[in-house]
Write a protein that binds this DNA or RNA. Structure first.
Lengths: 194, 194
DNA sequence: GTCTATACCTTGATAGAC
DNA sequence: GTCTATCAAGGTATAGAC
């Protein structure tokens, strides 16, 4: 037992599960993958997560908690738009560098209609939260003259989030450069003043 | 037997397989799905496609053939840039309208590391061909003054392809409007002169 | 070309000992 | 918390009759 948070094993399962989910897809990884890599048995995982669904939900909620915490942290809320934007972009670059993971949302989106409804719900909420945050950030940036672009902030946010999701996936087929080209173009099209 | 092309059943399997692949992912559909929906038995599918890998490859190659044929057709090659671009965009809209399919490439990209190497190859080739075509189209469009954008044609192509791939997926979570907002923004950012 | 029957494997999940 | 043992279900694939 671990008083302050999850037991070591539980945390390891969550982290590896997240990695596998992003590397192989929800239907592409199994408890066996986890068991083998952690040197434990199938049943041990079921002790921490009774069902695969339960594991999946906690993986998503963990990501959401991380995002919400960062975004709402007083220190970060007052950061320049550029810095907040960079932080978000970097989280995608991190995925690319970590064995070419695709983003959690994209991974679950392609498997969406094979997922239990409970998982569909949590991934919806996460995505909605990110979308709204990005639209607000762009709007704020434009009003303060830091960025410039055509159209509504929401449409621009949609476009950027989509291309981040997609480029992480296509980079698997066409090479890392595909992702970095996309990033470059995104920054170019935002006309940052500094 | 069917002299001019595939037997009726084989074609039905291919079409349904493509649909299932784009709706449920490569690891999310099985021969049982196909058998049930077509009212045939498991073994009948194996007669036409000895392995799932063989089926997957032919689905991808069919898509590639369709693309190559359209793009290289003399009639289409001389079409205005705008019309060629619209055709491509519409093929994505069609996926959205067809039970929220994601694009074939995006679907296989998330499952990429669980796929047999032979499938990885064909999907790579398809994607590369599309990417190059799009870059050429944008380049041609800019030189003839039909579109205007910042940066290289290749980077812009990467950005557009990525966002199309991603928005089709995220529209499953956040609604069809997500996809259409992306389309709107893409056109806006290209500054078509007509 | 399609069927029945079946082999074999992987998967998610449970029971009960330690 | 972790193990052994086991299960039922579902997956791909094959053999052979029709």
């Amino acid at each position: 037992m671990c008083v302050a948070g999850k037991s070591s094993t539980k945390r390891k399962i969550l982290e590896l599960g997240e990695s596998l989910l992003q590397r192989l897809g929800y239907n592409g990884f199994s408890y066996h993958h986890i068991a083998q890599e952690l040197g434990i048995k199938n049943a041990a995982i079921h002790y921490h997560f009774p069902t695969k669904e339960a594991l999946g939900i906690e993986i998503v909620q963990r990501t959401r908690t991380r995002f919400t915490k960062w975004v709402n942290h007083p220190e970060n809320r007052v950061k320049p738009v550029r810095q907040q934007f960079d932080w978000f972009i970097n989280s995608y670059s991190y995925n690319l560098k970590s064995q070419h993971r695709v983003c959690l949302i994209g991974s679950l989106a392609t498997d969406y209609y094979t997922l239990p409804p409970s998982m569909q719900s949590v991934i919806n909420e996460l995505t909605d939260e990110i979308q709204k945050w990005m639209a607000r950030l762009l709007d704020h940036g434009r009003q303060s003259g830091v960025v410039d672009f055509q159209g509504s902030s929401q449409d621009k946010a949609v476009c950027i989030l989509s291309s981040l999701t997609g480029s992480l996936q296509l980079a698997r087929l066409l090479g890392d450069d595909f992702f970095y080209r996309n990033i470059k173009q995104i920054y170019l099209d935002l006309n940052f003043t500094y």
